[in-house]
Design a protein around this nucleic acid. Structure first.
Length: 108
DNA sequence: CATATGACCAAAC
DNA sequence: GGTTTGGCCATAT
């Protein structure tokens, strides 16, 4: 792998942990990777993936539940829909339904 | 080394 | 629902 920064490896590892049909946020990934508050680094790390398809980058959206990716939002929406995640016409995902366990405190 | 920009976030208005 | 502000840090120039 050609990770520029050591922290990227941890970020990628956490993103790979997201199960299909679920989504998480940049900030939450940063916390799980051991870098609370460094959400921006997560976004940069995922952007750095470019063509490397080792990581399910499409399962990561912003904390508001919206797709933040301006470059591949169409592809990201299509991939999420393909996994069963309902994406709104405004590229919005219901975090209460599809949010990953790590950010979903009510499951009972 | 200094600035600007960015797949962010939370609080405030 | 929207915008603005301050904060975090990696890259590019």
């Amino acid at each position: 792998m050609s990770s520029q920064h050591p922290a990227y490896a941890a970020i990628y590892a956490v993103v790979r942990t997201i199960p299909p049909g679920k989504v998480s946020s940049y900030g939450r990934i940063a916390i799980l990777a051991g870098f609370p508050g460094h959400a921006r680094m997560v976004g940069y790390a995922l952007h750095s993936l470019h063509t490397t398809h080792d990581v399910p980058w499409w399962r990561v959206i912003n904390a508001h539940g919206y797709i933040s990716n301006a470059y591949h939002r169409d592809e990201q929406r299509a991939r999420l829909l393909a996994e069963g995640v309902a994406v709104d016409a405004r590229d919005h995902v219901n975090l209460h339904e599809y949010g990953w366990e790590a950010m979903n405190f009510r499951e009972a």
